[in-house]
């Protein structure tokens, strides 16, 4: 088997959310930590779209930021195309790798510098990595990139506020492609957009993937979008991956009780007028998560083992009840 393009191994991140030192000394109280990501591992093959899906507080965005190197992990490692992103790899290797990794952010209003012209925004990676020499060559390349994402080369002289949300996201995609990136981490790229615009952006991302053989790590809370985009999916709950599975299988035969609940909860257009039984409970406070399997308070199959022992990820699912055969699993069609 080919070596995976990106390997994420036992990634952890804790945030110190204690009160300031002086407050702790005077008021008493211990240091407090929030485990945002707690031992997450997955592989991404070259050219595939791996999606992380989960509700707020699941840690999916934190994983994304650690993978691209915006946030140092508290533990674990990320290896992309054989180059370790954490620790003491020669910084030259990492600098070379950096050009090939880009990110698309959720809010296109915050991800473009409002004081910069679009052509300067798109040209920034080209200039930073010294990919081209001379203003003319750079301007031509920027025009090419803008055309590629469905804008006009003449749009380069405008400022971000002159564009709609969807057009801004196109600019952000052009910037991500400017350094000839091959791995793009997309953090909720369409959550801030209207559905018809979302469709435009998702189609564009698909087309670009087909054209350039891009590899995507796709973060979203929207199951339908994830299903549309992903070849493989990891479902996150409170900082852990509870299930990893091929895109189609996950929806056809979900194993983990949380995945089942999520799929049941998504309002679906095909459900028009139909009734359904809603699921109960909410995500617990991540500062003080339940012991054992963090899903146990909401899980109809929880027993004592679930309440005390963290289930390992075996055969793509982290659930004692599935491992013990207490939950029947539908066979993927």
């Amino acid at each position: 088997m080919e070596k995976p393009y990106a390997q994420i191994n036992n990634l952890r991140r804790t945030f110190d959310i204690s009160k300031p030192w002086l407050n702790r000394v005077i008021e008493g109280g211990e240091k407090q930590y929030l485990k945002a990501v707690d031992g997450v591992s997955f592989d991404i093959a070259r050219g595939e779209t791996f999606a992380l899906v989960g509700e707020s507080g699941s840690g999916k965005s934190t994983v994304a930021r650690m993978v691209v190197g915006l946030l140092p992990p508290s533990g674990g490692d990320v290896t992309i195309d054989g180059v370790p992103m954490v620790g003491r790899a020669s910084s030259q290797d990492r600098q070379r790798l950096r050009r090939r990794i880009q990110m698309i952010f959720q809010d296109p209003y915050a991800s473009l510098n409002p004081r910069w012209k679009v052509e300067d925004i798109v040209a920034e990676p080209i200039r930073a990595f010294r990919l081209l020499d001379g203003d003319k060559a750079i301007r031509e390349r920027v025009g090419e990139l803008l055309t590629l994402v469905g804008l006009h080369p003449a749009d380069g002289i405008k400022f971000p506020h002159e564009f709609s949300g969807g057009q801004r996201q196109r600019v952000a995609i052009a910037r991500a492609l400017a350094s000839n990136a091959e791995f793009i981490v997309c953090d909720e790229p369409t959550s801030a957009l209207d559905v018809s615009v979302q469709a435009q952006i998702l189609n564009l991302m698909r087309d670009l993937q087909d054209q350039f053989g891009l590899t995507y790590l796709f973060i979203s809370h929207n199951l339908a979008v994830v299903r549309h985009m992903a070849t493989r999916i990891g479902v996150m709950y409170l900082g852990r991956i509870v299930e990893i599975s091929g895109g189609r299988e996950l929806f056809a035969a979900p194993k983990h009780p949380y995945t089942r609940m999520l799929l049941d909860a998504v309002p679906d257009m095909n459900m028009a007028g139909e009734e359904r039984v809603p699921i109960s409970g909410e995500i617990p406070n991540p500062i003080n998560p339940p012991s054992g399997c963090t899903f146990n308070p909401r899980c109809p199959f929880a027993n004592d083992r679930c309440r005390s022992e963290v289930p390992p990820l075996l055969d793509g699912v982290a659930c004692h009840a599935v491992h013990e055969g207490r939950i029947a699993i539908a066979v993927a069609a």
Partner: peptide, 18 residues
């Protein structure tokens, strides 16, 4: 334009512009 949980589409219907 809305991706569905059922069925298979490679491309979503897209309305040009905004």
């Amino acid at each position: 334009a809305i991706p569905s949980l059922k069925g298979d589409t490679h491309r979503l219907t897209q309305i040009p512009g905004s």
